[in-house]
Amino acid sequence: MPQFNPEWFASQIFWLVVTFVVLYLLMSRIALPRVSQIIEDRQNKVEDDLAKAEKLRTEAQEVYQAYEKALQEARADAQKVLRETGDEIAAEQAKRNEAFTKELDQKTREAEDRIQAAKTEALDSLQSVAGEVAQSATAKLIGANIGKDRAEKAVKQAMGGES
């Protein structure tokens, strides 16, 4: 068997050592550090990207929450403004209503006063007219001038008796 031919033992061992040492040096000095670097870089990149994605996700969550909160606040604000405006309008209405009622009352009273005055005046002038009528009637009927004062007194008496 060629495997047990000692003629080639030394040569095989010698070249095995030479080639293997060369291989070892090439691998340990150049190839393996390079591959290891590549794999490490890739791992770092992947981890970086994952961390970045996680950060962005958290940020998005925060933004969403802030938005939600702002929306809620705005809604509350609107509700408040609505309520306040309603209250204001109601107060204004009540105030105006009151003022108007007061004005109306006063006008009514003034009108009543005026009516009363007019009535009194009318009655007064009625008396004087009635007096004059009575005076001239008396003068025509009996031809006696009884004077203005007496005629008026007589009319007043007659009206007073009735009223």
Binding site: E7, A10, Q12, W15, L26, M27, I30, A31, V35
Partner: peptide, 27 residues
């Protein structure tokens, strides 16, 4: 000592070249 470069040595050399090429050229 007979330290001749033989067909065995040749294929060892080829193996070293192949491995080195595989590990260094594409990287």
């Amino acid at each position: 000592l007979n330290l001749s470069y033989t067909n065995s040595s040749l294929w060892m050399t080829i193996a070293v070249i192949l491995i080195t090429a595989l590990m260094t050229l594409p990287t």
